[in-house]
Design a protein around this nucleic acid. Sequence first.
DNA 1: TGTCATGTGTACTACATAGTACACACTCGG
DNA 2: CCGAGTGTGTACTATGTAGTACACATGACA
Lengths: 116, 116
Amino acid sequence: MTFGSHIRERREALRGDDPSFSLRQVAQRVGIEPAYLSKVERGQVAPPSEATIRRIAAELSEEPDLLLAMAGKVSRELQEIIMRRPQLFAELLRQLRRAPDHALLRIVREVRDGDW
Amino acid sequence: MTFGSHIRERREALRGDDPSFSLRQVAQRVGIEPAYLSKVERGQVAPPSEATIRRIAAELSEEPDLLLAMAGKVSRELQEIIMRRPQLFAELLRQLRRAPDHALLRIVREVRDGDW
DNA sequence: TGTCATGTGTACTACATAGTACACACTCGG
DNA sequence: CCGAGTGTGTACTATGTAGTACACATGACA
């Protein structure tokens, strides 16, 4: 599922019970031209900038991190976290590359609960 | 310390006992114009592309991840790791944002040793 | 004293990114 | 049957990225 087809499906699902989710109206609320959103949804142009993707995510009640990933991007915020301690995070990420989801979740929980 | 001044100092240090680390010769081995390397080292232009930074790192025996971070970038390789499971890694990174170095190291070791 | 290598200034360029502007064709309710 | 709203095609543009090409001034050294 590409970025474009994903947001198109999401928008059409929302339009099911709310006609204000037409392409034109969503584009207006997001702050871009309807023709541009149309091309984005059909994958005719590259996905928008991070800022625009965030506004689309908010409008469609989607996870920004997920939409950004579908657009082939990683949020600038996460990049900054990595860049503060590049080798530590580089090694950690490479280490976790093949770890199963539940292992990642366990680490998240452990760190959150602060038991270390 | 900026990206430019850092690689300049590194290069000049190496030139101390090996004159083949002149700006021109390094530029040639890296595969870029001397004038361009000069401007990069003095911060007169933005840092090079990831590929060029990697070749500079190899030439100067520096850590690519570190130089990339100094250039305000995160390697495409790490970004791909994140994009495979965006929300999991997003939450993990935000969680680890304020964690001390030794905590990160502990996790790296734990994952490497596979004790889970 | 010339020449060789050094670092740097200036001008230019190809390509990618992130869109805008406007016209067009369709369709559906009043 | 018409007008409002819908999605889309075409053309254009401003800014950023990632450099190249060439000329110039300097200093060492043989």
